[in-house]
Design a protein around this nucleic acid. Sequence first.
DNA 1: ATGACTTGCGCGGCAAGA
Length: 258
Amino acid sequence: MIIATWNVNSVRQRLDHLLAYLKEHEPDVLCLQELKCQDDAFPRLEVESAGYNVVVHGQKTFNGVAILSKRPVEVRAGLPGDENDAQARYIEATVPDCDRIVRVASIYLPNGNPVGTEKYPYKLTWMDRLISHARDLLKLEEPLVLAGDYNVIPSPHDCYDPAAWANDALFLPQTREKFRSLLNLGLTDALRAVTDETGLYTFWDYQAGAWQRNNGIRIDHLLLSPQAADKLKSVAVDKNMRALEKPSDHVPVRIELA
DNA sequence: ATGACTTGCGCGGCAAGA
C-alpha cells in the first residue's frame, strides 16, 4: 500500500502536476495540503476521472486539506479541541486495505511566523491539540499514518543552514520539543526509520535561488503508529517534482506499507 | 538587505507563506 503526502501550494495551479503524479506513482492514498480553495472549487471531476475518491476540507484563499484514495473512505474533517478554529488544516479518513483498515490524516500544521505575533502561540496550541488527538488515536492500536506539512524542522540535520533558522517558528526549541512530544507518544518518523542521511529536504523557497543552491528544509513528514511502522517497506522523497515548470515549493514524500 | 518568488483576490497592490 502506497501513501504519499504533498503540499501543492494551490491545487488549481498544480492540477497538471498532480494528475501526472497520480499516473506515475499510483498511490493508494495521497494527502494534499494548501489547496487554497473552497470545496466546490476543488478539481474533483479531473481527480475522480483519474480513478480517485476525494474528500476535501477547504476554505477560501488559504489552507485547505484533502485525501485522495483509490478505495472509498470514511471521513472526519477538522482537528478536535477548538470548535472556534475556522482554519482548514486537518482531515482524517479510514481506508480499507485488504483485510484491514488504515487510518490516514492529512495535516497542515500552522507556520507560526512571525514569532512574537499571535501566530506562534496559535501554532503551539494547535500542536497541543494534535498531540491530544494523536494520543486518542493511538489507543485504537491500528495502522495510523499522520501525514502532512508539519512546518517543523526536527533537527539541524534537516536543514541546509541551521543558523539561518535559529529564530524561526519552524525551528525554535519550543517547536521541536512539541514535535518530540508527539513522537514520544509512540509515533515513528517514517523517513528517519530508514535513513540517517542528511541533506534530505522537502521544501525549497521560491526566492533567492534556494532550489539551485539546495538551500532546503525537511518539514513534510509521515508519522506512523507501531502497527503502521511494523509494515514500513520504503520511503521516497520525490525531489524531481521541484525541478518541473511552475512547481510547488514542497515535494511529495511517499511510503510503502507491506 | 523588513529584499529576493508565488498565490489569491480581483484589477491595485496587499497578505501570507517558510
